[in-house]
Simulated assay, not measured.
Amino acid sequence: MRRPIAVAQRHSRLLTSGVILAAQSLLLTLAAVPATASADDTRTPARGTAHMGTGVLAHEGVQGRPVGTRVAQTEGVDVSSHQGNVAWSTLWKSGVKWAYVKATEGTSYRNPYFAQQYGGSYDAGMIRGAYHFATPDTSGGAAQADYFVDHGGAWSKDGKTLPGVLDIEYNPYGATCYGRTHSQMVSWIRAFLDRYKQRTGRHAAVYTSTNWWTQCTGNYSGFGANNPLWIARYASTAGTLPAGWDFHTMWQYTSSGPTVGDHDKFNGALDRVKALANG
């Protein structure tokens, strides 16, 4: 009986050695793989680098494609400095008929590619407008509206200029709701929208996601009567809207379109896009 026991012990020692060697090899392999960003990455982006959907992608980023609908939809894009100089004629030929360009953020950042993007989309034949990325933790709503209007966010009744957009969403630089209570956030948004109306004569549109709006404004319902809604939801439908809005005007449905920028649908045919531009 001793011989079988000795053989078994030898096999056990060999198996243990093999497991240890395999584990050591795995650890060496993992150590050689470069670290990548993850959902738990705590690195903070540089101020000014935010764009439409920055926070939506991080918090709600399930990609999808629009489902069929009986209502005519008009394809659009939104761009920022991340896209650099845009080939607008290529986008036009692909079916994109309207565009929004990031103009400003806070009261200190201006998109260095704004002139090429804003003017280039117009020259290609698109109906275009500008948007402002809100940072309610850095300055007041009225001050940011003034900065926006003074640096690209103004409106003119030329038939090809859409009203400005307030991009209010997840904070990419810190606390989700920018350290504001529900009432403080609503007051900030109201200050921005009121000043924009005073300066331009137009009601600005509001870009947001339902989840963020619910979390950070308490699902406030007071802006739906005047301010068009641009809903962000990367899925096959626009989904449930924030309180106060019975329908969306625009829908950002993906952050990875077939061409440049985020892709969007206007909730209507091209004549409705023109109607919004004309006021």
Results as ranks from 00 to 15, higher is better:
A238D: 00
K160S: 13
Q73T: 11
A277P: 00
G18D: 13
M185L: 12
P163C: 03
Q252G: 06
T254F: 04
Y147H: 06
A22Q: 02
N111T: 07
H51K: 11
G152R: 09
V77Q: 03
S236M: 04
G174L: 01
L229N: 08
T181P: 02
Q63F: 06
T36I: 13
G140Y: 03
G218A: 14
G125H: 03
V33N: 07
R202I: 09
V33R: 11
R43S: 15
M126Q: 14
N267L: 03
G153M: 12
H182M: 09
L241Q: 06
A134R: 01
L26Y: 05
H11T: 14
E75F: 12
A72P: 01
R199N: 07
L27F: 13
L162Q: 10
I231V: 15
G244S: 08
T104S: 04
V56D: 02
A72I: 12
D194N: 14
T161A: 14
T42L: 02
R199K: 15
L193I: 08
A32D: 12
P66I: 12
D264A: 02
A32F: 06
A275M: 02
A205F: 01
A232D: 05
L26N: 03
V62H: 10
S121R: 06
H82C: 02
G152E: 06
G174F: 00
K265T: 02
G119V: 11
C216P: 10
M1A: 06
P34A: 09
G174C: 01
H203P: 01
G159Y: 12
L15H: 08
T208Q: 02
T240L: 14
T259M: 13
A50C: 01
L30H: 05
Y100K: 00
Y131K: 07
G201W: 08
G268Y: 10
P172L: 11
G257V: 07
R272E: 15
W251K: 00
T42V: 08
E169P: 11
E105P: 13
N227Q: 03
S255F: 14
G61Q: 05
V67M: 01
W88R: 07
W212Q: 04
L166M: 13
G268C: 10
